[in-house]
């Protein structure tokens, strides 16, 4: 699978940009949190596309955002 680039995203409408990012993020998130991956991905897609692109390149950034999202989810459902 080719890496997602800024120019690939720039040519798509916002909703489509988020979908493309979600397709890349989901398997990475699923590897960390199989049961919550769909909700975590949905939450992270509220973040700016430029930051999401960075997270795709940086496992540390993605991991810390996933941890944050899980904490928010757990508080939400508590």
């Amino acid at each position: 699978q080719e890496p997602l680039t800024v120019s690939m995203l720039a040519s798509a409408p916002l909703q489509e940009q988020k979908h493309m990012l979600g397709e890349r993020l989901f398997p990475l998130i699923e590897a960390i949190h199989p049961t919550l991956a769909a909700k975590i991905t949905g939450m992270l897609l509220e973040i700016d596309a430029s930051e999401l692109l960075h997270m795709l390149e940086s496992p540390e950034s993605l991991g810390s955002k996933v941890d944050e999202a899980v904490a928010v989810l757990q508080a939400h459902y508590a």
Binding site: G22, L25, F26, A38, T41, M43, L45, E46, H76
Partner: peptide
């Protein structure tokens, strides 16, 4: 949208509607 349905779930292969489907 209702907080009960938050957050929206992303499923591969399904077009992303984001917050619209809440």
């Amino acid at each position: 949208g209702s907080s009960i349905n938050w957050p929206p779930e992303f499923h591969p292969g399904v077009p992303w509607k984001g917050l619209q489907n809440i």
